[in-house]
Simulated assay, not measured.
Amino acid sequence: MTELFVVRHGETITNAEHRINGSLTDKPLNKKGIQQAENLSKKINIDSFDEIYTSPLIRAKKTAQILSKGHQQIHLDDRLKEVNYGSWDGVVNRGLMEKYPDAFNVRHFVTESYTKYAINAEEYEHVYARISDFINDMAKKNDKRILVVCHGFISVAFFKVVTNVPSINNILQPDNLGVSKYLIDSNGESFLSYYGRLDHID
């Protein structure tokens, strides 16, 4: 089976300010985010991975560079970009929650109904489709260990696609540098091993 390790990028200033952090908000890691990535780099053996894939957004790419330690080529993949929140990208969460409470769940996570209000926003179903396509490609890797660096909602999307859980409202977004592990067989069937770990990465 292919082993897929999905990592959320390190913290950015927009994370710290509790802003909507989508694909249009292409900010670098802050000092804490860099330290988070460096901490994880000490907990994993990067040489045990056959390939590294990352979202091309700055925060994910920098995280991947820190984790790779220059040992491996990093493959950029647009399918791993964070969801495009359209006109909501970069906006402070609190103001949006006050104005559009039905677009957030009890954990203050943006629900799929947000597209009723955000202009030029990406539907969650489109995100699930691109992640499903990525997983199908990884199924052809024949027992390789693959490191994937992406984003908060993309991490949730991996969980949704693999487990087929009915609603993402019951899925917590991993912390920055949280790691999730999936197993994928050659037929494309996938399994969750663990979700959002910050230590004991194996």
Rank of each mutant, 00 (worst) to 15 (best):
T54K: 09
T54L: 06
T54R: 09
S55L: 10
P56I: 02
L57F: 05
L57I: 04
L57Q: 14
L57C: 07
I58P: 11
R59Y: 00
K62S: 12
K62H: 09
T63K: 09
T63W: 00
Q65L: 04
L67P: 05
G70W: 11
H71V: 03
Q72R: 15
I74F: 08
H75A: 01
H75K: 12
D77F: 08
D77P: 01
D78Y: 08
R79F: 05
V83L: 10
N84H: 13
N84S: 11
S87E: 03
S87G: 10
N93K: 14
G95S: 10
G95Y: 02
L96W: 00
E98V: 04
K99P: 12
P101L: 00
P101V: 00
D102P: 07
R107G: 00
R107K: 14
H108K: 14
F109M: 08
V110N: 01
V110M: 09
T111A: 07
T111Q: 11
S113M: 11
Y114M: 01
T115D: 05
A118Q: 07
A118F: 00
I119E: 12
E122R: 15
Y124P: 14
E125Q: 14
V127M: 13
Y128H: 12
S132D: 15
D133Q: 15
F134E: 12
N136Y: 06
M138E: 02
A139R: 05
K140W: 12
K141T: 07
K144L: 09
R145W: 08
R145L: 04
I146M: 04
L147T: 04
